[in-house]
Design a protein around this nucleic acid. Structure first.
Lengths: 325, 325
DNA sequence: TTGTAGGCGTTATCAT
DNA sequence: ATGATAACGCCTACAA
């Protein structure tokens, strides 16, 4: 910048202003500065800027898993808002482990991110302390937490699972089963919603109606095997996770089980896949992209000094009824 | 840090060393420093560190699309290497647009990323100039480029497409069609490979055997419609992109076309999905995760001053023969 | 092994 | 509208 200033025949301060608040610099000087910048191939140093102004243009995002297509929509939503605003996105994975999340938060705070989006809603005490100490805006995404750290943009896992289960009950299914991922806090919430719905629908509650399975398509096949062996009179299966329902459908296909004749199927997440398989799978549409957008917007609003009316936004969900149930 | 130093009764330099090179500080002092850090909730400022040492611990990654599951494996590979090394990942999207890529590169260089991973291999002249000027290690990923910017870790789109097409020819299919994404540089390379294979196999080359389709499952259905209307005697379809083959399979299912009886199917990418559908789809396994790992490893090696024997690594591919062809 | 001095490249602040 | 000066918080280089 020193060199740019020299070449343009102005002070460094003027260069800085020409770069950051062009309207505050006379056109003549502004042009000379721009020419000097181009000539020297000068690249503004945002580290120095952040250090000096004690405010950065980087937002941190911590996801439970990087390999999950449902999160990529949220990433896209965040990125679409951040990029035009001149902000960058820093990404890391927590594996749904509070300890690992804590380490990542520490690393991000050391990088002086100006805001944070956390998908998990379970944090270590130390992590919460660090977040409060950092005094930066934080958005939580994965669920509507009872005790938010700061802001929340999400939907209710419990509520959505309950709604879908009630939907199945209303369709006349009475021996409904639930398959969810093991060791996953969001899956647990969904299971609670499932149970609430069963009771509210006046159906007998059967603990064996719930099964924990692995991630991925294989989890869906595990659920079908479980049903065959342990609860063969099941008439509908609600798969609460990612591609489980598709895996279940493929396995039914292989076994010659008619869907929904032998077994009705419903999915928690409406991936594109759900619409394209045969039969198309009834699913919950969750506003994954919107969650990203709103999270980023709220973060930016706070960084620009606007006080927000809402600290907690429930974006809800939608039931997409299709041929599988 | 000043406060930590005061509380621990040492100089700031000692604190800095206790943090960065603990082995160079006597245990007694180190302990006192750590206690002071904990007591004050001190968070190291990596911006200041980077500015002062003129070396950062952030790597930039630019992907054509954030919503594509095949890239998430590469992201995971990069992250798995970066995290233990204390590096962070900054992520952005180029939409396969060299102009947009150029803007992102500029933004990343302003953030003083210490290395860059680019999935695209087509860059604007200005982008290349900036990269060379920045003198940071760069890895390209999406293809084996004729004229690399710096390092390359990839596979050959042309070679892989050619191999799969030859595989289909060897299986006895003689009216093979190719479906690829429109306006996608990697899809174009794959098409070249397809054509080479057709000629090498001694099959008649028919321009109508190639069709450009949309992204996503719907693209597969488009390909099937095209075949029905414009080239009904096609006996095998090679889908060169992401989920296209699955979309084609679902559409065949809907039409009652037997796979591979009426039409054989092959996919360019081996997503999990390909193994789980019925029939399972013959696919190219591309080392997406490994590409991420190796890219990050090569970047780190260079940042640690090691000179690398290889600047260009072709990780190859594998044909997974399954029931669809 | 520890400390001192100076500077990394920018912006806040105050002055002109 | 522009400039001078002093931080921002850390590390390099050198000294003790």
């Amino acid at each position: 910048m020193r060199e740019v200033a020299k070449l343009a025949g102005v002070s460094r301060m003027t260069v800085s202003r020409a770069l950051n608040q062009p309207e505050k610099v006379k056109e003549a000087l502004r042009t000379r500065v721009q020419e000097a910048v181009a000539e020297l191939g000068y690249v503004h140093n945002h580290l120095a800027r952040s250090l000096s102004s004690s405010r950065s243009t980087v937002i941190g995002l911590i996801l439970p898993s990087l390999e999950n297509s449902i999160f990529s929509q949220t990433v896209k939503g965040i990125s679409d808002v951040l990029r035009p605003a001149g902000f960058q996105l820093m990404l890391a994975e927590s594996s749904d482990d509070p300890e690992e999340e804590e380490r990542v938060i520490a690393a991000f705070l050391a990088q002086r991110v100006s805001g944070l989006v956390l998908h998990s809603t379970r944090h270590s005490a130390a992590a919460i302390k660090m977040l409060r100490g950092a005094a930066i805006p934080v958005v939580e995404n994965g669920d509507m937490p009872a005790d938010p750290v700061d802001m929340v943009v999400s939907y209710s896992n419990r509520g959505a699972a309950k709604a879908m289960t009630l939907h199945l009950a209303r369709l006349g299914y009475s021996r409904i089963a639930f398959a969810g991922l093991v060791r996953n806090p969001r899956a647990s919430e969904r299971q609670v919603g499932f149970r609430e719905a069963i009771e509210e629908a006046g159906l007998p509650f059967d603990p064996r109606a719930m099964v924990g399975v692995s991630r991925g398509f294989v989890g869906g096949a595990e659920a079908i095997s479980y049903i065959e062996q342990s609860r063969p009179d099941t008439d509908a299966l609600f798969c609460a996770g990612d591609v489980l329902a598709a895996g279940a459908l493929f396995d039914c296909d292989r076994r010659g089980w008619a869907v929904p004749g032998r077994l009705a199927l419903a999915s928690f997440d409406d991936l594109d896949l759900m619409r394209f398989v045969n039969p198309a799978i009834t699913a919950l549409r969750l506003p994954r992209y919107e969650i990203g957008r709103r999270s980023a917007e709220m973060l930016l609003a706070r960084l620009l000094g606007r006080e927000l009316p809402l600290r907690s936004v429930d974006l809800g969900f939608e039931i997409l009824h299709r041929a599988s149930a």
